[in-house]
């Protein structure tokens, strides 16, 4: 097995072990309940719904939205109210990952990213995602994770809604919505337009993932946007040597379709390492050295 193959096996094993570690409450699948233990104070480094029956950790995006949407959040943060200050724990955790290794969790841990990679293996016509669409995830992060939950109120003085979870997140529909509604047999949860809308979003993302490389991660994921921005300043990053022959094999194997040889510090890079193993002249490396990532 070559270097490329070894990295891929290791990455897949890491993704599966992470998935298993975050889903230890198997009982939830038997009785359509969710885990309520203390580990849910801590977030999983990936997009994984905390209402998934087996999940034992919290979703970082869901947690952030629930906090910023609470009434008087900004005032509470300014005055040091403990319930508002808790957001520093989540933001600090996410920033620490981003500042250490950028979007590494997207490539090595996130279960929804793994699902998209597996779907892309299904034989079908393949379609490139326009590069300009990548900006969409920054809009989703700012608008649906922060601005709308903070500002939009159905009733003045009441809390807001987690808009990303409510109208976009396909992981929530797949891991929690569909299983819980199906297990309850429609008796507990009365579905309506919103459920239909979210199901349609999930089906579209699944179909899109068959034809394009990790489209949700590249176009819509607010967690990817967060880590992409902080990853520009990460300790561990990519380096491309002068020995690069511009063959673009790195782009062919890249799960997010970037030309790492042209932009080693790309905010899109998920640090999966596939390009390192595929490079015919061994020009691509991980590095933590000073000022060498854009030496071409």
């Amino acid at each position: 097995m070559g270097r490329f193959g070894r990295t891929e096996v290791l990455r897949r094993v890491t993704q599966l072990v992470s998935l298993a570690a975050g889903n230890l409450y198997i009982k939830g699948w038997a009785d359509a309940s969710i885990y309520t233990g203390g580990s849910k104070m801590f977030c999983i480094p990936g997009l994984h719904c905390y209402s998934c029956p087996s999940s034992v950790l919290a979703c970082p995006m869901g947690s952030i939205q629930s906090m910023v949407s609470s009434d008087g959040f900004l005032g509470g943060l300014a005055s040091g109210r403990p319930d508002a200050l808790a957001i520093l724990g989540i933001l600090g955790f996410l920033l620490a990952i981003g500042f250490i290794a950028g979007r590494v969790a997207c490539g090595w841990i996130c279960p929804f990213g793994m699902l998209q990679e597996l779907l892309y293996k299904i034989p079908s016509p393949k379609i490139e995602v326009p590069a300009s669409w990548r900006a969409g995830k920054y809009l989703v992060l700012v608008l649906f994770v922060f601005l709308l939950p903070m500002t939009l109120r159905a009733v003045p003085g009441a809390g807001g809604d987690p808009w990303f979870c409510k109208v976009i997140c396909p992981a929530g529909t797949l891991e929690a919505g569909w299983p819980l509604v199906m297990m309850s047999g429609g008796e507990v949860f009365q579905t309506g337009f919103l459920f239909t809308w979210k199901s349609a979003v999930l089906i579209l993302v699944i179909l899109w993932s068959i034809t394009s490389k990790r489209p949700f991660c590249r176009v819509l994921c607010p967690l990817g946007a967060f880590w992409g921005l902080s990853g520009k300043l990460s300790v561990f990053r990519m380096r491309v040597d002068d020995s690069c022959i511009d063959c673009s094999k790195c782009r062919t194997v890249c799960p997010v379709d970037i030309a790492i040889h042209l932009d080693p510090s790309s905010a899109e890079c998920i640090r999966c390492g596939r390009c390192i193993g595929e490079c015919p002249v061994d020009a691509i490396h991980h590095t933590a050295r000073a000022g060498v990532e854009t030496n071409r």
């Binding site: 969710i34 409510k166 929690a176 919505g177 309506g192 199901s199």
Partner: peptide, 22 residues
């Protein structure tokens, strides 16, 4: 210094918005 109970409080109840009900 914060109160992580608020994270738990949300994560330990079924999120109706997440599942497309709320």
């Amino acid at each position: 210094f914060g109160d992580p109970f608020v994270i738990w409080q949300k994560a330990a109840s079924i999120c109706l918005e997440c599942i497309g009900i709320g």
